[in-house]
């Protein structure tokens, strides 16, 4: 530590405190918006299913050949979906407001906080995302360096924002096709808008599945960072607190000291924890460590 000279003159004893190093990962607003979206999206998908059942014509295949029918009767039966169209509509057209407003605030926050720079893909993202996927599949040892999100996350999280926008717009196209006629025609008409709305829901469900799996694989630290905001970094830092300051901070009562900012080159900014003016030294000999020893 190179800050010794800095303070040697005025301080002759230090407290040692073990500090966790943590990355400030998710801003409070993002955490709230994310967790509000979770149950709302669930309600939207669920009520959407109740609605879709009433005219469940979509399938995958060609000609008369069907590989996958949306959805098999067993699926409906297991989830008790049939004959609940009215209930589905009443839920869908209530919770749509929360879904849309929450998403709108999220986008506004991304824009005005500058967070969008961490989420939107950049010129390298497409190539890097491939490497990330290979890494995740254990086909490649190292992953490309990243900031808050890796390239695959950037692409996925950006896509999902546009999917949300798409769901809202195709939703309006189906909900009010006369009042928003030009929007409906923009999506290829009423029937196409319905297909697109349905497809987006499938994609959302797919995203949700992969997201859950990735969160499980990423482990606890990653998950808790979406709740606490802090991602704990592996290395701990010992900091030396001049006893004078420590006394002021009432370390005897084991009060935690304030968070200490680390500047870009990762060295301690000593000015933040050691007031230069303070000369008085009132030590507790039992707990002090003399730097000269």
């Amino acid at each position: 530590m190179n800050f010794m000279n800095h303070t040697l003159v005025s301080v002759n004893a230090f407290w040692i405190r073990h500090m966790k190093k943590a990355e400030k990962k998710h801003p409070l607003a993002i955490r709230w918006l994310h967790w509000i979206n979770f149950p709302i999206l669930a309600v939207m998908v669920w009520s959407g299913l109740l609605i879709y059942w009433a005219n469940d014509i979509y399938r995958m295949g060609w000609g008369d050949k069907t590989i996958l029918r949306f959805f098999p009767d067993s699926f409906y039966k297991a989830l008790n979906i049939p004959f609940r169209l009215a209930e589905g509509m009443s839920l869908h057209f209530v919770f749509m407001w929360i879904f849309a407003i929450n998403g709108f605030i999220y986008v506004l926050f991304l824009i005005f906080s500058g967070e969008w720079r961490l989420i939107f893909p950049n010129s390298k993202s497409l190539k890097e995302s491939l490497l990330v996927v290979l890494h995740d599949l254990h086909l490649r040892k190292s992953a490309p360096p990243q900031k808050k999100y890796n390239a695959a996350q950037r692409i996925a999280y950006t896509l999902v924002i546009f999917m949300g926008l798409g769901s809202v717009l195709t939703g309006i196209s189906i909900y009010k096709p006369v009042q928003f006629r030009s929007l409906t025609s923009l999506f290829g008409g009423y029937e196409w808008a319905r297909i697109e709305h349905f497809t987006l829901t499938l994609l959302f469900s797919l995203f949700f599945l992969v997201h859950i799996l990735q969160v499980i694989f990423a482990g606890w630290n990653n998950f808790q960072s979406m709740v606490t905001g802090l991602f704990i970094l592996p290395s701990e830092e010992e900091i030396l607190i001049p006893s004078s300051v420590a006394t002021q901070m009432d370390v005897n009562k084991n009060e935690p000291i304030n968070e200490v900012q680390i500047s870009e080159n990762n060295s301690l900014n000593i000015d933040e924890i050691i007031p230069k003016k303070n000369n008085s030294v009132t030590d507790d000999p039992d707990k002090k460590i003399n730097p000269d020893e």
Partner: peptide
């Protein structure tokens, strides 16, 4: 904004 913001925090 672009750099990770790292803090020290007691356990």
């Amino acid at each position: 904004m672009n750099d990770k913001e790292v803090i020290l925090i007691s356990s």
